[in-house]
Amino acid sequence: MEQNAWTDADDQALIARIARGYRAALDVLYRVHAGWLTARLQRRCSEPELVDSALQDTFVAVWKSAKKYKRKGEVGAWLWGIAVRRLVDQTRKRKPTPMDLFPGREGRTDSAEEQALDLGLHGDFGAAFADLEPDLQAVLMATAVDGLSTKEAGDLLGIPQGTVKTRLMRARRHMREQLT
């Protein structure tokens, strides 16, 4: 069992201090979280400038809304929820070129260890997900994983909301078939 030097309780304490107006706490929160947020956002959008703007908007939003953080769930998830929505806002202003979410070759065989890991992490979901067409993976990622609405997902991916819905239906059908 790994020892986490930094826990969610530490993040919660930072948010509390940010809510009381301490800029130093925001600086610390930035140094702890900006890296992975940037990386994760960059996996959703092809344009680094949009990601940069969204990342900046995220911490500005954190500063302004720290008081409203209600301790439901972990700070990391809360931050990601803000970040991905700021990214959607950016793509509404400026449409990015569509990107391939998972360019890695699926041909690689995962080791037995990795398969056991995937099973533990998300059951058969992982294998079924990997099996989907890229377009369907993208909408499922945006809605099921990132928690976006179909409208927001459409803006992020640069496709109409209707297309998101149909693809989502197909994706879910596929997943149901695979998992039963």
């Binding site: 790994e2 986490n4 930094w6 826990t7 979280h33 992975w36 990997a130 989907l132």
Partner: peptide, 24 residues
């Protein structure tokens, strides 16, 4: 990364500060 690898990493980041630090 592949879809499976990506999901692995992001799931790991969801619960592990060390993974978040490593990626960051």
């Amino acid at each position: 990364t592949t879809a499976a690898e990506t999901m692995r990493v992001e799931r790991a980041m969801d619960s592990s500060a060390s993974w978040r630090g490593l990626v960051g």
